[in-house]
Amino acid sequence: MAKLLKKLTLLIFVFALICPLLFAQESEAQKAYNQGDYLQAAQLYQEQLQNTSKPSAALYYNLANSYYKLGLTPKALANYYRAWRLNPRDKDIRHNLTFVMAQNVQSLIPSDVPESAFNLFFYLSIIELEGLLWLLGWLFALVLILVLITSNKKLRQILILTTICIGLVGVWYWVRLPFDTKPLAVVNKTKAEVRSGPGENFPVNLSVPRNHIVEIEDRKGQWSQILIPSENTQGWILKEDLEEI
């Protein structure tokens, strides 16, 4: 018992030591942001990102805010988008993302999709959707076992309901997955040239404005093939002209 108490005390001591350090770093970044030292804030948030295996939406959001204040809008946009993918229900993230997109003639919600449908479709993040699917799976297994043991009528109904839920969530997940896994990028060059092939020798077909979000379809050396959904046009652009999301 005494040994256990000793271990517990040690654990609490170590935790107490580490915790303030963790929070101190965050407050340092926040402090830098509040003082208008956005570069320092961005560096600190970037460090936190590098030191964590599970970056949070808030961390991406704060980093994006720092980049935005620095005038690095493409980087800000990319990080807001990452934050939104992790937490699509967050109002602050949604506001800042749509705010920056609107400044660049873009809209998060496609014009032909009702806002309520969009909000419902993106109510859960893809991680949450996957978690929900597994949770329903476990519930199904549990109810199935109980039904096999007891043959209870109510449990049978619950089993049917769970199966329907799994089917619906499964379809939702399957439809959502491409939206969350397709590689996107933000154009980080003013009027970036888009060519018909992966090389300087191919003619420039169009130019894309800075901060425009594009889909990456292929990569070849220093070039990325992009799709501009708003124009339904494809082309090749230098990788260095893109900030990948």
Binding site: S125, L129, W134
Partner: peptide, 25 residues
């Protein structure tokens, strides 16, 4: 004028916590 919203604290909703925990199994 308009501006972006201020910084956020690391707050995760119970829904996110639960579902993420299951996913992370």
């Amino acid at each position: 004028s308009s501006d972006i919203y201020y910084l956020k604290n690391e707050g995760i909703s119970p829904l996110t916590k639960t579902l993420t925990a299951v996913k992370e199994l």
